[in-house]
């Protein structure tokens, strides 16, 4: 694995230069929000930031995506593909938790049996540059409880580690190596930097605040689809989509046709298990009759069903749902409470 060194003050310039010829997604400040956006001319990519409010899943699994278009003509129906050509892109500044979310999502969208061409194409064409958490940004971080690590390079093509004056750039994949080559002639990293990285890694791990018994609850979830505990979470829930939309691993979607006169498009858009509409059937019957069942679905999906299907918890411990839930429903508390049952 190739390791290079990038001068700290040179990085922003490199990214901006890259954005002139390639599509670059990066965290930027937009008024009071810190968001992953397409880096356009005049925009400043953030290097010293906590984490973006929105998860970067949007670049592979957009909130709305046209799957195909159709047109009714005199000769019959004409079909065409959805969006135009998918471009090469660089996704910069992803935190290790979010980078890990792509590994989890790959399980689903790039399953040996079921391949999602929309997701896979974008994923293949995008190089991910992660920015390790030398200091985990929030007290709500709990990546280490769900198999992540603040300095992990899992899911990234290049992982940058802030060593003070320089970044240690670790290539994780051939895609990452290609990208580093494009960044110019960067000096190789020596052994001393490697040792420093290990030191930072150990310190960062200790800094992660929360320990959530995420693995310990699987056995309980297996046995307790019906349990009075499920009556205790949902009452204050507003049934909004904040947790699911900001979540890096939530991936449920809905497919709808939008037709205007002779033109139609089939779009896929994010769905949210928090919404009453989530599983309403055509007949009007809804198997999940209340927020209780919807909340059970969210917890089960993350900590049981996904584990059953892919042997991994569908949570990366980024803490977004904890921080941004308008009524402070805290997944850490739910998991901890279950572990005590």
């Amino acid at each position: 694995m190739e390791k290079r060194v990038i001068k700290k003050d040179a990085l922003a310039g490199i990214i901006k230069k890259m954005a002139e010829s390639t599509l670059v997604y990066a965290p930027v400040r937009e008024e009071d929000n810190l968001l992953f956006k397409v880096l356009e001319k005049g925009m400043e990519p953030l290097l010293d930031f906590d984490n973006a409010k929105n998860a970067p899943k949007n670049f592979f699994f957009p909130q709305t995506e046209v799957m195909m278009r159709y047109m009714r003509t005199e000769r019959g129906k004409e079909l065409s593909t959805g969006e135009g050509e998918i471009q090469e892109a660089v996704l910069f500044g992803v935190r290790p938790c979010d980078a890990r979310s792509f590994v989890l999502l790959d399980n689903l969208f790039n399953d040996p049996k079921y391949k999602d061409p929309y997701y896979i194409k974008r994923r293949e064409k995008t190089t991910i540059v992660s920015l390790a958490c030398v200091h985990p940004p929030y007290t709500t971080c709990f990546c280490t409880s769900v198999d992540g690590h603040p300095l992990s390079s899992e899911g990234a093509d290049v992982c940058l580690i802030d060593l003070g004056d320089t970044y240690l750039a670790e290539c994780v994949t051939p895609k990452g190596e290609d990208l580093l080559k494009k960044m110019g002639d960067l000096p190789k990293a020596d052994q001393a930097l490697e040792a420093k990285k290990q030191e930072l890694s150990d310190a960062a791990e200790k800094e992660v605040n929360g320990a959530v018994p995420a693995h310990a609850i699987k056995a309980w979830l297996d046995e307790n689809f019906e349990n009075p505990f499920w009556d205790t979470i949902h009452k204050s829930c507003l049934a909004c989509g904040t947790c699911t939309y900001l979540c890096p691993t939530c991936h449920c979607f809905d497919i709808t046709d939008e037709v205007k006169k002779e033109d139609g498009r089939r779009i896929r858009s994010w769905d949210s298990c928090m919404s009453w509409l989530f599983t309403v059937e055509t007949s009007g019957h809804n198997p999940r009759t209340s927020q209780k069942e919807r909340w059970r679905q969210r917890a089960m999906h993350k900590f049981k069903y996904f584990v059953d299907n892919f042997d991994a918890i569908a949570c990366v411990g980024c803490g977004r749902c904890v921080m941004y839930c308008p009524v402070n429903i805290d997944i850490r508390k739910i998991v901890t409470d279950i572990s005590k049952l």
Binding site: N54, Q63, L238, A239, C240, G241, T242, Y245, S272, P326
Partner: peptide, 9 residues
Amino acid sequence: MRCYACRNT
């Protein structure tokens, strides 16, 4: 982002 938190609260 159309989460509808405004409407729901």
